[in-house]
Design a protein around this nucleic acid. Structure first.
Lengths: 343, 343
DNA sequence: ACACGATGGGAAAACGCTCTCCAAGCGTGT
DNA sequence: ACACGCTTGGAGAGCGTTTTCCCATCGTGT
């Protein structure tokens, strides 16, 4: 029965015995309408089962009631079917959950947008033409041109994670330096003698900050020299890095790993190498993703309140939509250490 | 500069020196247009930077170019901020990835829709009014009224996972019985003597099938009696179930766990209890989620090709949108066993 | 030459809504 | 009693497309 015409404003107006304009006013709760009519109109709405047509409304208001979650990975090509399997990373789900928690109560839609190396221009075009009112951008690669393009196009947007290059767009981020320092302090407090670290890619801001934060804090504890291997945030790279570190520095007794997934890999390698965690080697991860809990032993890690951050990003975007001239701002979250068994 | 009016069909027409109708025809690649004009029009499009206005188009075509991914969890209330943290389950990401792989190349948007216990009616209303052309439904709880409502409303939809009650809607599913049988065969082949199982909730179809599939296959191997604990697919419930099983049947030597997350929990408990896996106890999970790989030892599990299934669901939905009278169909995927270290 | 089917392009009517005018109705202050 | 302001509701003009007619124009077969 879907083909039967859906009731329109016109229909409701006829039933209620008023004009379209009045119905529109009532439905949108605008202006003082005589309580009597108000009543009649709602009755007519119920009776007809009327639901406003989104497109028609958007066409005139120039608002879609949709925001896009843009996952930008300009290092992946558009024809990679699963976009580098990013989706199975718990990261993605946490962001979606956080966004939803503020969007859904407000009746705002969330539209998913992937964009690889090629799609930037098209994305911007689509966004300008009513795909969405604004975008929350998850920028994976280091130097992503997307934020710049969005800013130029004047598309309301909020980034999750500080952009690599300064750009006039608001963002939420974590104080990665402080997080890494937390890890360093923990490790130092346990009395480690030979700390090492497994870092993320050297060109993404979060990664850079974690490195410098860890080094700086360790320096304060008297550790001037921290051997380091570079991974790419996958479990596999964590394993490789740990193996390399173990080979080069057999007597290491503490390792800071720049995210939980890599930490998981490191734990595996450590176990295989017969090192006891945390007795022989202490390990601290980063993110407090679901992976941390399933680790064996349970991973001590730096909590990254991604859900909250995503929720805040949504709020910032919404408020910018209300007032486009709002100042560009940033909100930085403070990480905390969650102590489990590995350190 | 976003406030400046975007170019419309009208503008392009003026530049190209033709009528709106012609531009529309060219842009949509419809009918034979004189190659000469065709050329002019595209030039004008480039020059003006024209992008069709989605809303205006949808308004007349009655097509949105959007499909909704509806996550239905009628057991969660609408005010639960994170909808039971479902999003951090790798399950969700895999589905999104699969859907995207077919939707994105076609330029079809994916809109996320959560719906708890209260929102069914509203969702159906929204869907009918151009939120989306159709829906892919991920139905979490056992007896979800949503599929029925969608069918009644005549909204094109495809389910991921067989519905608990028969409903005239197409779906994709996994042959869960066969998957469980695979696990049973594996365990039996290794020569286990006292197999047990940790199942999912007894009212969701996938769970029921895994239980019966496992029992039936084990029966064929001569194991008439399989102790069982019931979990709810979370790691935590896996731990509890494993503990209970261990207490009640200390000599168990094989366990089939109805999903990887619970298997992870089981592995932890087994380890703490000093049982060696797989020497003392063999373990087989289900799903082949990312968790399986990070398990220690790496989890032998039944592969659930969720990405492929989601992709197929997207294709089915798309084809139904093209031809609404298409027959209701189902596609059942065959699971495979991926052998790693736990069995 | 003439009629006749293609074929290509334009005018204009929707699509369902919002919102700006206006006109009426009413109360109030002088 | 009159003018004036304020509230309330209606008419109607868009918003940017698609698509249905319909009119030229052109080539073709007799």
């Amino acid at each position: 029965m879907q083909s039967q015409r859906l009731p329109t404003l016109e229909d409701v107006a006829r039933v209620a015995g008023v004009s379209r304009a009045t119905v529109s006013r009532v439905v949108n709760g605008i202006r003082n309408v005589d309580p009597q009519l108000h009543q009649q109109v709602w009755a007519a709405v119920d009776q007809t089962g009327y639901v406003p047509n989104r497109m028609a409304r958007s066409l005139v208001t120039r608002r879609t009631g949709t925001v896009a979650l843009v996952v930008s990975d300009s290092e992946t090509h558009d024809d990679d079917p699963f976009m580098g399997r990013f989706f199975s990373d718990p990261y993605f789900g946490r962001v979606v959950g956080g966004l939803m928690s503020v969007l859904r109560p407000l009746g705002v839609q969330l539209a998913l947008q992937m964009v690889g190396a090629d799609g930037h221009k098209r994305l911007v075009g689509d966004l300008r033409n009513g795909q969405a009112d604004g975008a929350v951008v998850l920028s994976l690669p280091a130097r992503d041109p997307l934020p710049g393009l969005l800013a130029d196009a004047g598309i309301p947007a909020v980034l999750i994670g500080r952009p690599a290059e300064p750009v006039p767009i608001s963002y939420v981020d974590l104080d990665n330096e402080a997080g890494a320092a937390l890890a360093a302090d923990r490790l130092a407090t346990r009395g480690c003698r030979r700390p090492v670290m497994i870092s993320g890619p050297p060109d993404v801001p979060a990664s850079v900050d974690r490195i410098s934060g860890f080094r700086r804090a360790m320096a304060r504890h008297g550790h001037a020299w921290i051997p380091q291997e570079t991974g790419n945030f996958t479990q596999d790279s964590g394993e490789q890095s740990m193996r390399a570190l173990l080979a080069a520095h057999p007597r290491l007794d503490a390792v800071f790993v720049a995210n939980d997934l890599m930490a998981l890999g490191a734990l595996l390698v450590l176990h295989d190498a017969g090192r006891r965690v945390p007795e022989d080697v202490a390990v601290v991860g980063f993110d407090d993703s679901s992976a941390a809990l399933s680790a064996r032993p349970a991973l001590t890690t730096v909590r990254h309140p991604l859900e909250d951050m995503a929720a805040e990003a949504a709020r910032m975007l919404l408020s910018r939509l209300d007032d486009p001239d709002e100042r560009v701002t940033s909100v930085i979250y403070e990480p905390t250490l969650v102590e489990r068994q590995t350190a």
